[in-house]
Amino acid sequence: MAKSDPNHVLRRLPIFVGGLGAVLLLVNRLLTPQITDSQARADVLGVILSAVLILIGLIWQQVQPRSPDAVELVGEEGFVLAPDLPDRVKTELAWASHLLLTNTVTRSLVVFYQGKVLLRRGILSTKSEVKPGVILKRVLEKQQPVYLVDLKVYPGRIEFDYLPENTQGVICQPIGNQGALILGANAPRSYTKQDENWIAGIADKLAVTLNEEMTNYN
């Protein structure tokens, strides 16, 4: 279920204040038996200010950026490592995945390396196997990240069936030239440029460790 916009009260505040001001001016005018020139001028200014506030509120409803709508991803929370991984690799994967899940909008992640799934963590899909589709293959071949800001609008989203079915955004970040870090977010357009740079740095660190430790892994 999508969460409501946390700024909706702020957006409507000028409309509320402007409307309240107009009502109070009207009540004051009705209850005043004799209107002086100075009071009439003050009432005119009050009406103008109320109208401006209402107009500002209406404009905010249209142009003020809204926070991305977050959803609860479908699936069970879990932490699954491939069997018989070297201890150093287990530690590195646990560290990296914890940082990503607690410091970004990532809610589900997969580490795919040398054709195998080394780690699944966060909200897990019922499907665990990763079959690289067009998008992931391009990331692996070109070693360039791909950020799908709003997954539901991309026809290629069907290849990410190993992520929760209602995943909103996906980053595929290459891990050296042999794998990829696949991150699923619970809100569209939610990764910042700083997040992307940070994810790239973590992937580079994983690449060094995996390249050193995974040579003899079967």
Score class of each variant (00 low, 15 high):
residue 13 L to K: 09
residue 46 G to C: 03
residue 86 P to V: 09
residue 10 L to I: 05
residue 52 V to C: 04
residue 104 T to P: 07
residue 218 N to L: 14
residue 141 E to K: 03
residue 21 G to N: 08
residue 56 I to S: 00
residue 125 S to D: 11
residue 199 I to T: 04
residue 158 I to Y: 11
residue 177 N to G: 11
residue 113 Y to N: 08
residue 41 R to V: 12
residue 44 V to E: 12
residue 80 V to A: 15
residue 197 N to Q: 10
residue 145 P to R: 00
residue 65 P to K: 00
residue 14 P to A: 05
residue 83 P to I: 09
residue 150 D to G: 02
residue 160 F to W: 13
residue 6 P to C: 01
residue 195 D to F: 01
residue 84 D to I: 02
residue 161 D to T: 01
residue 177 N to T: 05
residue 167 T to N: 09
residue 8 H to E: 15
residue 109 L to I: 04
residue 150 D to V: 05
residue 199 I to F: 09
residue 9 V to S: 12
residue 58 L to M: 11
residue 3 K to H: 15
residue 60 W to K: 11
residue 142 K to W: 02
residue 191 Y to F: 09
residue 36 T to H: 04
residue 216 N to A: 12
residue 9 V to Q: 13
residue 12 R to I: 08
residue 46 G to E: 02
residue 151 L to Q: 05
residue 15 I to M: 15
residue 58 L to V: 06
residue 52 V to S: 02
residue 34 Q to C: 04
residue 168 Q to N: 13
residue 60 W to N: 10
residue 4 S to W: 05
residue 41 R to K: 10
residue 166 N to E: 14
residue 99 L to F: 13
residue 211 N to W: 03
residue 213 E to W: 10
residue 209 T to L: 06
residue 104 T to Y: 08
residue 125 S to R: 14
residue 215 T to V: 13
residue 70 A to T: 02
residue 41 R to L: 08
residue 76 E to I: 14
residue 82 A to P: 10
residue 212 E to I: 07
residue 174 P to W: 03
residue 28 N to A: 14
residue 42 A to G: 03
residue 5 D to A: 01
residue 121 R to K: 13
residue 193 K to T: 12
residue 23 V to M: 10
